[in-house]
Each structure stands twice: as C-alpha cells, then as structure tokens.
Design a protein around this nucleic acid. Sequence first.
RNA 1: GCCCUCGUCAUCUAGCCAGGUUAGGAUACAGGCCUUUCAAGCCUGCGGCGGGGGUUCAAAUCCCCCCGAGGGCACCA
Length: 474
Amino acid sequence: MVRVRFAPSPTGHLHMGSARTALFNWLYARKMGGVFILRIEDTDLRRNVDEAFGAILEAMRWLGLDWQEGPYYQSQRLHLYREVVKRLLEEGWAYPCYCLPQELEERRREALKRGEKPMYDRHCRDLSPKEREKWEKEGRKPAIRFKVPLEGKTSFRDIIRGRIEFLHQEIEDFVIMRKDGIPTYNLACVVDDHYMEITHIIRGEDHISNTPKQILIYNALGYPIPQFAHLPMILGPDKSRLSKRHGATSVNAYRDMGFLPEAVLNFLALLGWSPGGNREIISREEMIEEFELEGVKRHPAVFNMDKLIWLNSHYMKTSPPSRLAHLALPFLKREGLIKEGDYPIEILERIMPLVQERAKTLEEMPRWTDFFFKQEIEYEQSAVEEWLRDELHRKLLLLAKEVLAVLEPFTKENIEVALRGLAEREGVKAKEVFHPLRVAVTGRTVSPPLLESLAILGKEKTLQRITQALKYVG
RNA sequence: GCCCUCGUCAUCUAGCCAGGUUAGGAUACAGGCCUUUCAAGCCUGCGGCGGGGGUUCAAAUCCCCCCGAGGGCACCA
C-alpha cells in the first residue's frame, strides 16, 4: 500500500511550489490507490505563524487536494522524538554537543576563510565523560548531534534522478535535537515518516542534500528506507527561486486574483510534468490516470504567468454560467457593484455567457459587467468624442431610441432587426448605429456584445441610458 | 569556496533510457480570416537541441571536457 505525505511548515501561506509538491503527492496516492497524509512540521515554534495553519488547509481544500490522514502536528509528538533520540544516544549513534552558537559561528567563519566547507568540526564528538560532566555542572544544555561516519558514502536511488551519492566526509555531524529538547527537521521527519509508514517521499529538490542524513538515521534505527523522488524547483522569470519579489506566490493570492482552482491545478501539473500526446488541458481525473513519477522533469521550471492566465481563460470559457455566476459574486461585491443581500443571481447567470470568454480572470468580471449594475455610468472621454459628439451619431442615437421604444418584446432578435433596419433606412453601416449606442449604454467602446447586453438590461434602462447620453453631449 | 543536481524555441514541454522523419505541441509575439467593439475561434508566420571534441554510415539521443543554471552547506524546514 502506497502511503505518501505532504509536510508543510506553517510559516506562511501555501506557496505555489509547495502546492505543486502537494499535488504530485496527491496524484501519486490517487494513481496508486494509496493514502495521502497531511503533516504539519511545526517544530520551530519561533517561526510558526498562527494564521498559516488555517491558510494552508484552506488552500489545500480550495485546490481539492483532500487528505485521508491528518493533519498531524509534530509539536504534539515531541515525546516520540525524544524517545528516539534517547535511544540513539544510548546506542552510540549520537552525542551531546556543548558548543555555543557564537563558538560555532566563529569556527565556521574561520573554515570558510581557509577555503574549507563550513562544517561542524566535531569538537564534542569525543568528549570524555569527565569533560561532559564539567559542562553539565556549568549548566550548559547540550544539543544532540548525529555521529556521521568519518569515511565511506551514502547513496540512494531517486525515482526521478537515478543514483545519487554523498561522501560522508561532506556531511557534518548535524544536530538532531536542539538544546531546548525540540527535535530538528531531519530527525522528526525520519521518525514520522517511519511511524506513519510512508513508502514514498516526494518532495522538493532542495531536500536532496538532507536525504543522506536521513538515510543515516534510518540505518542507525534499523528502519526500512522509503523510496525518494525529488521534484525540480519552480523558478521566477529571472531564474532564481520563485519568491515574493516575483509577485504573488501563494495559492490563496491566486484565488483572490480571480483564478479558478482547476486552472491553478492544471498549471501546476504542467510544471515539471506533462501528459502524453501534446495536451495542455487536462482534468483532475486524467491527471490521476496518467501521472507517473518517472515522467517528472529533472530540471527546474520557470513560472509562466502567461500560461496560467491562458489556462484560466480556458476554464472560464468552459465553466457553466451558473457556477461562474457564483464564483464571480464575491468579486462583484468587492467592487461594490452588488450589495449584501441583493443577489440577482439569475441575471448574473444570463450575463456570464456574454463575458466568460472575454474576462481572463474573475477579477476582470467587474470591469466587463459594471454597466449592468450601476445607476450612473461614467463615460470614457475618448469614446464620447469619437462616437457621440458629432451630428450624425447623435441623430442616429435619437432614432435608435425611437425604434427601441416601441419594441415588444425587447429581445436580442427584435433589437437586431430594428437597429439594422434603421441603419439601412439611413444609408449607413450598422456599426454607425451600434457604436454610439454602445458608448451611451456602457460608457465605453469596448463591451460585451451589445444586442444581448441591451436585452438583459431591459428596455426601460436602455432608453434611460440613451436619454442620459444625449443630455450629456447636448 | 566545497558538495549535489540539471541544461531542447523567450517560457512550459514531446522526443533521450532501447541513435536514423523537414526536432512536434502549447503559451507569448506578429500577420490574416471572421466580426457591432473587445474577446473567442480558425489559419499563417517567428523561434530551439549551451559550446567543443569523440564513437558511428548516422548523434538532441551514447562517451569525455568546458560553459551555464539551480539547490545545499543552521541548535530553519
């Protein structure tokens, strides 16, 4: 039985890179009929951010990445880690280190100055019982370090990258438990992965160098070693690791910018992996069906905002209007176009087909639809100058008002016949009638399709807008 | 500085493992068609195997060197 986990630390919102890691874990679990576990790595109390806990779960749910076990919290499992550390100590796999942070820092700097790797110099590795006693008497609390073999190497097979090996001389005696009794990442991670019976560790490439350390711990403890798969990093346009300075990085931020969860998911799936057969649009079900760890790319991928936007517009176009109406609602409210308790949802559902292939994100919805809701519309000056100022267009607008006034019922088809008829009688092209009318009703030269818009707006409001516009330029 | 990993259009990628089509698709960009505006859609164009050696009848694909990029080097995760 495949068991995988996603183990974020609650130091901020769910990052897009982490979300991709979560997705690949989730996909693999689904594909293999396994279990997806959520574990919160909150052992660094100082760095924990209260709101991060909720934000991460929220983002996971929004993406639809549901977990079967957890969330487990490492901060509630400290007793477990302490037991394990005690055992490592007793069996000689670890030792107490009494060095002070300043001392370590100084020695690191010196090593660097000598052109050496800034590793711990194993100062306390072979302390005599007497020396230890001396430090203890002085009241120094030790950190516990793992005793890395002085020679030899540790290697493992990465599902994505193949064989990777590290010389033990390149690995320092890393801390497994801090002096305050809280375990560090590498220890807690191994213990949890073991007790949670994780079979495949799928995580970011930034963990490759942690892997040999963890394998050393697995071996010391006699734990079976799981499979590893290290995913490539996600980069910003400047090819450095994707971070805040590249703009929004959290899943929640993209949600708030009006992206659909399926678009984000599809986008993330394409970062480092691709389905067979030249396809870009891929559903959650297809992803599960076709996902393979072996097919994951080895090189880092640049976050391509244009592609995300394109995917989003695709899902906007293909979403049922009723769903889109509900999704757009918060954005319209945010702009004050719709008030609390006043949800003309059925009108929204009629409007959606007109704008869903135009707006690329939900955030653009207000701009496309505001004229449906506003009492007073604002005119774009250049639009007025171009289409309302001159004699001919004012006359056509007035005539349009007259033919529309007698239309019954006020449907798209009837409006079209009336306006085209008018243009023909006046010997002008249809657009000479449409454009002024568009500016009069929407205030802009760019809008959703005019005829459908008028039909939804209704006869009364349409005539009102024309009157207002004529007054405005008259 | 040391260690690890990686390198196909501007970007995401197919092809590489099992050498043999004009190196395919998508986004972006440019142009065209359609059209009441803007989009969408359709068509066309632009554009790449990091460099150099080697093996071979044949190299994006196998080997070596160089260059470049990313990651790691915490009592963070």
